[in-house]
Amino acid sequence: MSEIVKTITSLVMDAIAVFGIYIVFYGHLSPGGGFAGGLIISFLFILLFLAYGQKKAIKRLPYHFIRRINFVGLLGVFVLFILAVYSGVFELSLWKGQDFSLLSGGIIPPLNLAVWLKVGAGIFMVFVTLSVFRSTQDE
């Protein structure tokens, strides 16, 4: 893409990242949460991909690294949900905290984080698979 797009991308990337992280960490206090945050973080990668092209983006953000993040998110989701389903951990909060403060809400902030990692990595993986695909007719 053109130089303008690249420059603007490099300028807004940090802002997008901060916004995405804010949406996740304050997901239990204000509108937002793991899904929205994950989508925003995946935009960051998609923007990189569209502006700088496939090769450079993959170099800055290797595919297997994304996969690893995906697995971490998956593991987090699974373990936390098992805890949630079986013991009803929600009732015995990890940190009781003050209402309306960042450290409150028991298990929900960690769950938000896990969902965030999972969704962010997952959407990016879908995007990469769908747009990198080239014809295989000749094989």
Partner: peptide, 8 residues
Amino acid sequence: TGISNIVT
């Protein structure tokens, strides 16, 4: 639940 965003 201790959180203020009821949808979450």
